[in-house]
Simulated assay, not measured.
Amino acid sequence: MRGRIVVRDAVVQKVAEHVAATAVHAPPRRVRVSVGGSPDGVIVNITAPVPVPALDDTEAIAAATSVLDAAASVQRDVQQRLSSALGQDVIRVNLTVNGASAPQRRRVR
């Protein structure tokens, strides 16, 4: 069977926003995503905080990677997840770090 599947830009945008927010462990309101296309595939630009361990967790801080390593990990994760979800090649993921995102502690009442 021959044919093609067209995914609307708005759908690609929403999926990219969700994948990026999940990858950086930040609420979607703190993540900005723009998606562009080229003949070779999809290009994603993300502005988001980079995930860091909780500041009171000394073991997690000692085991944490550098900001550059964390950013590269986010780029790879977004590229793999989006490629899989969209069924298209994601040829580039640009990440601009605009802060840090530590895990939120929930208060128990």
Rank of each mutant, 00 (worst) to 15 (best):
Pro103Ala: 04
Arg76Gln: 07
Arg81His: 09
Ala10Arg: 15
Gly87Tyr: 10
Met1Ser: 10
Glu59Trp: 11
Val67Gly: 01
Glu59Val: 06
Leu55Cys: 00
Val6Gln: 14
Val50Ser: 04
Ile61Pro: 00
Val42Asn: 11
Ala48His: 06
Pro39Gly: 12
Val33Ala: 11
Arg4Val: 09
Gly41Thr: 08
Asp9Arg: 13
Arg106Ala: 02
Val35Ser: 13
Ser84Tyr: 11
Val24Tyr: 04
Ala71Tyr: 08
Val7Met: 07
Ser101Leu: 09
Gln79Leu: 07
Gln80Asn: 10
Arg76Ser: 04
Gly99Pro: 01
Pro28Thr: 12
Arg106Val: 02
Pro27Trp: 15
Gln104His: 05
Thr65Cys: 02
Pro103Gln: 06
Ala62Glu: 11
Ala63Phe: 04
Val93Arg: 05
Gly41Ser: 06
Arg8Trp: 10
Arg32Glu: 04
Val90Ile: 12
Ala54Asp: 12
Gly41His: 12
Glu59Asp: 13
Asp89Thr: 08
His25Asn: 10
Ala72Met: 01
Asp89Gln: 15
Arg2Pro: 03
Val7Gly: 06
Ala72Gly: 00
Ile43Gly: 01
Pro49Met: 13
Arg92Ala: 07
Ala21Met: 05
Ala16Thr: 05
Val44Cys: 03
Ala102Pro: 01
Ile91Cys: 08
Ile91Ala: 02
Val52Lys: 05
Asp56Cys: 00
Ala23Asp: 14
Ile43Asp: 06
Ala62Arg: 14
Val108Asn: 00
Val31Ile: 03
Arg2Ile: 08
Ala21His: 08
Thr22Leu: 13
Arg106Asn: 02
Ser34Glu: 14
Thr58Gly: 00
Ala63Gly: 01
Pro49Phe: 12
Gly99Ile: 05
Arg32His: 06
Ala10Tyr: 12
Leu86Asp: 11
Ala71Asn: 01
Ser66Tyr: 01
Arg92Asp: 10
Asp69Cys: 04
Ala23Thr: 08
Gln79Ser: 10
Val6Met: 09
Val35Thr: 14
Val24Asn: 04
Ala26Glu: 12
Ala71Trp: 07
Gln75Ala: 02
Gly36Ala: 09
Ala21Phe: 12
Ile46Cys: 02
Val15Tyr: 10
Val11Glu: 13
Gly3Phe: 08
Leu55Phe: 02
Val108Tyr: 04
Asp56Val: 03
Ala70Lys: 12
Arg109Glu: 13
Pro39Glu: 15
Thr58Gln: 14
Val50Asn: 02
Asp56Met: 04
Val33Thr: 11
Val50Pro: 01
Pro49Asn: 15
Asn98Asp: 15
